[in-house]
Simulated assay, not measured.
Amino acid sequence: MAAVLQPPSSLPTARLRLAPRGAVSLRVDGAWWPRSHHLLTELPPLISALPPEWGKIVTVTVNTQMWGDAPGRILAGHHVVRLRRESVWRSRHTVGLFEPDHGRRDLLVVPPELAPEDAEYLMAAVAAYGH
């Protein structure tokens, strides 16, 4: 059995914008702007920042082209979250969040190196329109 790695204790707040509830036929459910490509540091604050109605996220799908190495499981939001890595090109800039009762939700991942004004503009647009 693989070890579950714990994130650092002092985590910054996630930079996250979500589309309005009840929005119809969204391609993504919001946008997330991580500070780095290090999943062990970035995922715990993201999962903790999600609204309660999203439920308990148990699996996160990430693209291998965007993220550095990470364990198969991490501790996030006070529970173990399984990481699935994919190399599908079309999902390069998204992260999939799975919850058993509510299904899958996708967030656009804004590259950490993007200029703040561009990242804020992109996040606001995604939150407003969901695509």
Rank of each mutant, 00 (worst) to 15 (best):
M1V: 15
A3I: 06
V4N: 01
Q6N: 07
Q6Y: 06
P8F: 04
P8G: 11
S9N: 08
S10N: 10
S10Q: 10
L11W: 07
P12S: 10
P12R: 05
T13K: 15
A14T: 03
R15S: 12
L16N: 01
L18G: 05
P20K: 01
P20M: 07
G22H: 08
V24Q: 12
L26W: 04
L26D: 06
R27I: 00
V28G: 04
D29S: 11
G30E: 01
A31G: 00
P34I: 07
P34V: 12
S36V: 03
H37K: 09
H38V: 13
L39E: 01
L40D: 01
L40Y: 09
T41A: 15
P45G: 02
P45H: 06
L46H: 08
L46W: 13
I47M: 01
A49S: 15
L50H: 11
P51K: 12
P52D: 06
G55C: 09
K56M: 13
I57Q: 00
T59I: 10
T59R: 13
T59Y: 02
V60A: 02
V60T: 08
V62G: 10
V62W: 05
T64A: 15
T64K: 12
M66Q: 12
W67T: 03
W67N: 11
A70Q: 09
A70P: 01
P71F: 02
P71C: 04
L75R: 05
L75T: 01
L75Y: 08
A76N: 13
H79T: 01
R82G: 05
L83F: 10
L83G: 11
R84G: 03
R84K: 10
R84S: 13
S87D: 13
R90A: 11
R90C: 02
S91Q: 00
R92S: 10
T94D: 00
V95Q: 03
L97Y: 00
F98M: 04
F98A: 09
D106H: 14
L107N: 07
V109C: 01
V110K: 00
V110L: 14
P111V: 00
L114T: 12
L114I: 05
L114A: 12
A115S: 08
A119F: 11
Y121L: 10
Y121E: 06
L122R: 15
L122C: 09
M123C: 09
A125R: 15
A125L: 14
V126H: 07
V126D: 07
Y129L: 05
G130K: 04
H131E: 15
